[in-house]
């Protein structure tokens, strides 16, 4: 059984690597489709501010006049070595920019997703165990309201009421801009500030985190509630639940102890998909809250016509989504042994 599980993990890992290479190939194909000549490609790499004569030289220097397959191999190997091009605005390698901004986003998105998942599981289970009662309809109204609202509306409403109205929480920035950022060891503000024992920064960061994280949670919990309710409704009809009731267990024990634990397994797969969506959604949340993470940076890069930055961010986010999918697959294998056989 153990070796079988290792085989399962290895198979999934190989799949993930193939998917990453395919994704890079796709970006590569897109770039070559929209910029068929070496000069156009050079313009993609260095930005729109060079005259055509210089672009020709730049294309030669960057090796863009080589055959396509050579360029492709260079591109793929470059990606795995962390070479994503040079930023046209800051003049530094993209990987440094991403190293600085991506962990900030990841930290916020992970906590926001956690909030969304807890909320989704809780409301979904409650809706299922009170099927077709006012509670069920209330939950439905709640998630329809936040899920159908455009994400920026959710963010702005929270900002208006909790931030500007009640003055409870700050409405922009990652932390108080007056404070010094703790030395970046991991890049994650949470871990860095604990390592540096910078409790002021940690407090400020936490306060600034709450609104964006709640927004992320609110716009993403609807799909989790929907699926949890569906699986819970199925689970509550199963024989083992009836048996649990017959044993004389209370409703609370049966719902949370028996049915819920069996119902949450399919949610794991959804989580990876949700993660992909929320990293995308982080763009808009960070834009609204001026949260200086990768999404905010992407929008700024778009306004500044910084092509390499936006392409590098797309590739890196796609890469992290594939990693998340891989983790979800393995978790699924651990939780539900039947999956390993396929």
């Amino acid at each position: 059984m153990d070796s079988k599980f290792l085989f399962f993990v290895a198979r999934r890992a190989v799949n993930a690597v193939i998917t990453v290479i395919l994704m890079i190939a796709l970006i590569f194909i897109i770039m070559h489709l929209v910029a068929p000549t070496p000069e156009d490609l050079a313009r993609l790499y260095v930005g729109p501010k060079f005259p055509p004569a210089e672009l020709k030289l730049i294309a030669q220097r960057l090796g863009l006049t080589q055959p396509v397959y050579v360029q492709f191999v260079t591109y793929v190997t470059g990606f795995f070595r962390g070479n994503l091009g040079t930023d046209t605005i800051y003049g530094i390698p993209e990987i440094l920019v991403i190293e600085e901004y991506f962990p900030v986003t990841l930290n916020m998105v992970l906590l926001g997703t956690l909030f969304g998942v807890l909320l989704g599981l809780f409301t979904g289970a409650i809706a299922a165990s009170n099927r077709n009662t006012p509670t069920d309809y209330g939950v439905k109204a709640l998630y329809l309201g936040t899920w159908a609202a455009p994400p920026f509306l959710v963010g702005v409403v929270l900002q208006l009421f909790l931030g500007y109205g009640l003055h409870l929480l700050p409405t922009s920035n990652v932390a108080n801009p007056v404070l010094n950022i703790p030395p970046p060891v991991t890049g994650f503000p949470l871990i860095d500030s604990i390592l540096a024992q910078d409790w002021t920064y940690l407090y400020s960061w936490t306060r600034h985190l709450i609104l964006p994280a709640i927004t992320i949670g609110l716009i993403s919990f609807g799909s989790i509630t929907r699926l949890t309710r569906a699986t819970m409704v199925d689970a509550l009809d199963k024989d083992y639940v009836k048996l649990a009731y017959m044993k004389g267990l209370g409703q609370r024990t049966v719902v949370w102890g028996t049915a819920f634990r069996n119902a949450i397994i399919p949610i794991v797969t959804l989580l990876a998909l949700t993660f992909a969506a929320t990293v995308g959604g982080a763009v808009i949340v960070e834009y609204v809250f001026e949260y200086h993470g990768i999404g905010f940076f992407a929008v700024q890069a778009a306004y500044a016509l910084d092509y390499p930055a936006i392409l590098a961010i797309t590739v890196i986010v796609g890469f992290s989504v594939i990693i998340a999918n891989f983790i979800a697959d393995v978790l699924y294998g651990i939780m539900d042994p039947r999956v390993r056989l396929t």
Binding site: L22, V34, L273, G280, A298, V299, T314, G318, V321, I322
Partner: peptide
């Protein structure tokens, strides 16, 4: 695998890149 590769793309970021 091709489907997975497409699925991994962050929709909003790719749309921004393309329109750029």
């Amino acid at each position: 695998r091709i489907t997975d590769a497409f699925l991994a793309f962050p929709l909003i970021l790719l749309a921004i890149a393309m329109s750029l």
